[in-house]
């Protein structure tokens, strides 16, 4: 392989600078607007100035240093994990059935389409009646919100599966189980993972309001608690943290769930010549 020359390196580093520079610039503009809105447009010492970025970040740093938020972060992450596990356990089989069984799809579509359009939080009273107060209704709300992206994406994956691949597996004398293991599941997996990623984001969005109901831990609870204590910088700090953790979760799932092709020797995109016929005594 040719060694990359200097010009190519320069282009590469210019691209890298742009990849870092633009997001940093965007963030700076956002912070400046926020600062301006809470410092320049309002009177000093007024109520709104308590929502300014500087006290919020100071409060966040102080709380993180003291570990005051650890309990809440842990509780929130645990709830989203359990909720997503439930949603996957229901959503993946449901999606496989919706995509693979025509009669089931026809029978279920009116119901799924209807239930899907109900905001997960509308279930809150029912969830509390059914599961009492504490973690279980939160699991329920997260699961019922994130089950749909998982199920629908899985169903789309099954439908997009090339039926000829199944015939191919049969032609190579694969058993049913082998066909599922080597062709159907790997074929559907990327769509399941896409569904999981969307489901994770949905779950994180549902989590915070769900935690404002009848629990005494978690970041959603902390926001209400900070409000009640008139700790507005602390409240804004929690909002920042929720956004940051959500971003990390999204990036992490996307990184974990993106299939990676293993590193290999470079492939030059030129057609391989058709080889000469083999010696007559050649055997496989």
């Amino acid at each position: 392989m040719r060694r990359p020359d200097e010009a190519a390196t320069r282009v590469l580093s210019a691209r890298r600078i742009a990849a870092v520079g633009y997001p940093v610039a965007g963030l700076a503009v956002f912070l400046a607007l926020w600062w301006g809105a809470t410092r320049l447009l309002v009177e000093p010492g007024s109520f709104l100035s308590q929502f300014a970025p500087v006290p919020a970040f100071e409060s966040l740093a102080a709380m993180l240093q003291k570990g005051a938020l650890n309990r809440h972060i842990y509780a929130s992450v645990e709830r989203i994990t359990v909720g997503l596990l439930i949603a996957s356990a229901v959503g993946i089989p449901l999606g496989l059935a919706l995509g693979g069984l025509r009669w089931f799809a026809l029978a279920a579509t009116p119901i799924t389409g209807f239930v899907r359009m109900i905001s997960p939080l509308s279930w809150t009273p029912l969830a509390i009646i059914l599961f009492g107060v504490g973690d279980p209704p939160v699991y329920f709300l997260i699961a019922i919100g994130s089950v749909w992206p998982i199920a629908l994406s899985t169903a789309a994956g099954v439908q997009a599966l090339d039926r000829a691949w199944i015939m191919l597996a049969r032609s190579l004398r694969a058993s049913r189980v082998e066909t599922v293991r080597t062709v159907i599941w790997p074929g559907v997996r990327p769509d399941v993972l896409t569904g999981l990623r969307i489901g994770t984001t949905t779950a994180w969005i549902i989590l915070v309001p769900a935690e404002m109901l009848g629990v005494d831990s978690g970041l959603g609870f902390f926001i209400l608690d900070a409000r009640d204590r008139f700790d507005y910088p602390g409240m804004v700090a929690a909002i920042i943290l929720i956004g940051a953790i959500g971003l990390v979760i999204d990036r992490l799932t996307s990184w974990l769930l993106t299939p990676r092709r293993r590193a290999r020797t470079s492939r030059v995109a030129e057609p391989q010549p058709v080889p000469a016929p083999l010696p007559a005594d050649y055997r496989i």
Partner: peptide, 23 residues
């Protein structure tokens, strides 16, 4: 149509049939 499985390398595609018990 070649019907190669897009998530497998050339080598893994060729080996596909050998992974089945019948072969």
């Amino acid at each position: 149509q070649p019907l190669l499985l897009p998530w497998l390398t050339v080598q893994e595609n060729v080996r596909l049939g050998l992974r089945y018990a019948a072969n």
